[in-house]
Computed example of a mutant assay.
Amino acid sequence: MDWGYTAHVILANSSSEVRVDLELVMYTVMGFFAGIYFFFKGFRDLKTKRTVEDIPTSRIATGAVGTDVEISGKIVCDDDRLLTAPLSGDPCVFYALEIEKLVRSRNSTRWVTIDTLHSDEGFYVEDGSGANALVFAEGAQIIQKGKGFVQHLDRYLRDEVRQRFRQAVADNRTELKKFDTGDADNTSGKYRVTEKKFMAGETVYILGFADSGLKLAAQRKLDFKTFLKARKLVLKHPKLIKRFDRDEDGALNPDELEWGAKVIGQRMVDKYNRDQFAKLYSNTKMVFKKAQPSLFLISNRKEEEVLDHLTLHTRLKLFGGPALSIGCAAYLITIYEDILKFF
């Protein structure tokens, strides 16, 4: 059965003809369930809005660690700790990429989000209270000014942009579910990527669970990026090659190289942990990261603007969702008999 064409139903003992657009029917059914989804999503947004309203803004130095806390402060970062945003090339402290795919049908085209990825470096926020907060933004709900920086993966994409994007995909490939590393070289235009980022010096609003951070530093594990750095380091130095050459054949086989990279990589992480632990203990009062079931929200808008954003989206979903479902249901009821005759 070809869903892309209009189906014709010839009524028995009659010269009349019923035309049923099966593709439209399919999208109407999808719209009905989408309306229900948006309705319930509106309740979640309403809960988020009320949480923002109910939790007062705290100073970092005096906020209650171990509870949900709301703060507002300026992002601070040394120049040598800045990241490069993959698409725009701007120096930043955090970036998030949303990857969409163009889905075509007979009567329409639409962009569908298939994957997201984030940088994994934390950044610091100060509010003038004498202490700072360390923020790991991965998994946070991000409400940002503007629509983000958008690039299409087509033949017009500059080589340096594609190279940075390819590297970001490789560094975060464990996050990807549908977008493959090889897709970064696609030039057909069927993919587009939206970049959101936070810059040093920006004032940000944060609401989430405030941890002391000491356990976080102690539990940090070897990540893939550090593993690759350690692997290159082992291959560069003859003394390290000799150290991990178990069979003493003068070269490292894959198992020996992996063993060496893990050992050296873990030492690199442990050194970072010791330095980070000392810094957390002396300067940082709070650490924010995704912690269920607490809300985790970051925005470079003011709190009032965040509330306006949430109010608008809540109303659209709570009222627009049912309206969409009712409209789709009404259409399906009007053509119900025609659909039965076709099947």
Rank of each mutant, 00 (worst) to 15 (best):
residue 23 E to R: 05
residue 23 E to G: 07
residue 25 V to Y: 01
residue 26 M to S: 13
residue 28 T to Y: 04
residue 29 V to H: 03
residue 31 G to S: 13
residue 31 G to H: 05
residue 32 F to Q: 05
residue 32 F to P: 02
residue 34 A to Y: 12
residue 34 A to N: 08
residue 35 G to Y: 06
residue 38 F to K: 02
residue 38 F to A: 09
residue 39 F to M: 14
residue 39 F to V: 09
residue 40 F to M: 08
residue 43 F to D: 06
residue 43 F to N: 09
residue 44 R to Q: 15
residue 45 D to M: 15
residue 47 K to T: 14
residue 47 K to Q: 11
residue 49 K to E: 13
residue 49 K to P: 00
residue 50 R to H: 10
residue 50 R to Y: 10
residue 51 T to L: 09
residue 51 T to C: 06
residue 52 V to H: 04
residue 52 V to I: 11
residue 53 E to R: 02
residue 54 D to R: 11
residue 55 I to A: 03
residue 55 I to R: 00
residue 56 P to Q: 11
residue 58 S to L: 01
residue 58 S to V: 01
residue 58 S to D: 06
residue 58 S to H: 08
residue 58 S to N: 07
residue 60 I to C: 00
residue 62 T to K: 04
residue 65 V to C: 10
residue 65 V to N: 08
residue 65 V to R: 09
residue 66 G to F: 01
residue 68 D to M: 14
residue 69 V to G: 02
residue 69 V to N: 01
residue 70 E to G: 04
residue 73 G to I: 01
residue 73 G to M: 01
residue 73 G to L: 01
residue 74 K to E: 14
residue 75 I to G: 01
residue 78 D to V: 04
residue 78 D to G: 12
residue 80 D to L: 09
residue 81 R to V: 00
residue 81 R to F: 06
residue 81 R to T: 01
residue 81 R to G: 03
residue 82 L to N: 04
residue 83 L to F: 02
residue 85 A to H: 00
residue 85 A to W: 00
residue 86 P to W: 03
residue 86 P to F: 03
residue 87 L to P: 05
residue 88 S to C: 09
residue 89 G to M: 02
residue 89 G to E: 04
residue 90 D to R: 11
residue 91 P to S: 15
residue 91 P to Y: 06
residue 92 C to H: 01
residue 95 Y to E: 03
residue 96 A to Y: 08
residue 97 L to V: 13
residue 98 E to M: 12
residue 100 E to S: 12
residue 100 E to C: 09
residue 102 L to Q: 15
residue 102 L to Y: 10
residue 103 V to R: 08
residue 106 R to L: 12
residue 106 R to G: 13
residue 107 N to Y: 12
residue 108 S to R: 14
residue 109 T to E: 15
residue 109 T to D: 15
residue 110 R to S: 14
residue 110 R to A: 14
residue 110 R to V: 07
residue 111 W to L: 03
residue 112 V to T: 13
residue 116 T to N: 14
residue 120 D to G: 14
residue 123 F to A: 01
residue 123 F to C: 00
residue 129 S to Q: 09
residue 130 G to A: 04
residue 134 L to C: 11
